[in-house]
Amino acid sequence: MAMNGTITTWFKDKGFGFIKDENGDNRYFHVIKVANPDLIKKDAAVTFEPTTNNKGLSAYAVKVVPL
């Protein structure tokens, strides 16, 4: 089920960042999981599918909501 969130941290040079989800949890995401990576920036609103990996909470099918 899709969730909403906000990008809180973005490491462009490393290709990953973190999203604060609607429950207040931080989720890892990688640029290859983003549909529109050219719009990635700190504080951008996103929708995504929540999941977990071996390191904890993460996100896939991430879409940055255009302003």
Rank of each mutant, 00 (worst) to 15 (best):
I40W: 04
N4Y: 12
F48W: 01
G17S: 01
K63M: 13
D13L: 11
A44M: 09
V34S: 05
K20V: 09
W10Y: 10
V31K: 12
M3V: 06
N4A: 11
N36F: 06
K41W: 07
R27I: 04
D38I: 08
L67K: 12
K55D: 07
G56Y: 08
N26R: 14
K20R: 14
V31G: 06
I32F: 14
G17P: 00
D13P: 06
N54Y: 11
T47Y: 07
D21P: 00
K42E: 08
L57Q: 06
P66C: 12
H30V: 07
G17M: 01
K33G: 14
G56E: 05
E22G: 05
F11L: 06
D21G: 04
K20S: 07
E49Q: 15
W10D: 00
G56P: 04
Y60W: 11
K41M: 11
N54R: 12
W10C: 03
P66H: 11
A45H: 14
E22M: 08
N4R: 15
K33Y: 15
N26H: 12
T6Y: 12
V34P: 03
G15N: 08
W10L: 03
K55S: 09
A2Y: 13
N54A: 14
K20N: 07
V62G: 01
G24F: 04
F18Q: 03
T52S: 13
F18C: 06
I32R: 15
K12I: 08
W10V: 04
A59C: 12
I19M: 04
F18L: 05
V65I: 13
G17E: 00
F29M: 03
G5S: 02
I32Y: 14
K63C: 11
S58Y: 08
F11R: 05
T6K: 10
A2S: 14
K42C: 08
G5F: 02
N53C: 10
L57N: 05
A59R: 00
K14D: 06
P66L: 11
G17T: 02
A61E: 10
P37S: 06
H30F: 06
V65H: 12
T9R: 15
T51N: 09
T52E: 12
L67M: 13
N36Y: 05
K42V: 15
M3S: 05
P37V: 06
F18M: 06
K14I: 05
T47G: 03
F29S: 01
N4I: 08
P37T: 04
N4E: 08
K33A: 15
E49A: 13
V31M: 09
T52D: 07
I32S: 15
G15D: 05
I40D: 00
G56S: 06
K63S: 09
R27E: 00
L57Y: 07
K33H: 15
T47C: 08
G56N: 06
V31D: 05
Y60D: 14
G15W: 05
K41A: 13
A59K: 01
L57M: 09
E22I: 07
V34H: 03
I7D: 00
K12D: 07
N36V: 05
N23Y: 10
P37I: 06
I7S: 01
M3E: 03
M3C: 06
K41V: 10
L57F: 07
T6H: 11
